[in-house]
Design a protein around this nucleic acid. Structure first.
Length: 114
DNA sequence: TTAATGACCTATC
DNA sequence: CGATAGGCCATTA
């Protein structure tokens, strides 16, 4: 267990608030390594603690979800997100402009929601 | 150890 | 502005 790299990633992913979603690059960045974008996905791939690691709240830069890599199936992620209140603007895409996690556990509406 | 792959992002023409 | 190619890091065979 290399709790040196992934651990950081998990820490971020596990810190994602309820009803919000974050992108790999964001997590990687918050983790302290903007190039871990690929590793972040890998970290979730192993997902040693899917019960504590909300990988379903993680999507790519465009808000698209994975085709079928989530623990349980694609519907799993979508279902979980919808269950939290996250709406989908497309078949497998969430509104990153409304649910995109700023990176803080407080909130944040400094974006243009207009 | 070398070679290949991946739930991504960024830079260039 | 739109489309294509490469880079980075870690895991696996």
């Amino acid at each position: 267990m290399k709790n040196n790299s992934f651990t950081k990633i998990y820490e971020i992913v596990k810190k994602i608030p309820y009803g919000k979603v974050a992108s790999y690059g964001q997590i990687a960045l918050l983790a302290g390594n903007p190039r871990w974008s690929r590793v972040v996905g890998y970290a979730l791939h192993v997902n040693p603690d899917p019960e504590h690691i909300p990988c379903h709240r993680v999507v790519n830069r465009f808000g698209y979800v994975s085709p079928a890599f989530i623990f349980g199936g694609e519907n799993r992620q979508i279902a979980l997100l919808e269950a939290e209140g996250v709406a989908f603007i497309a078949e497998g895409q969430v509104d990153m402009k409304k649910y995109r996690w700023n990176g803080e556990t407080e909130g944040g509406r400094k974006l243009d929601e207009g």
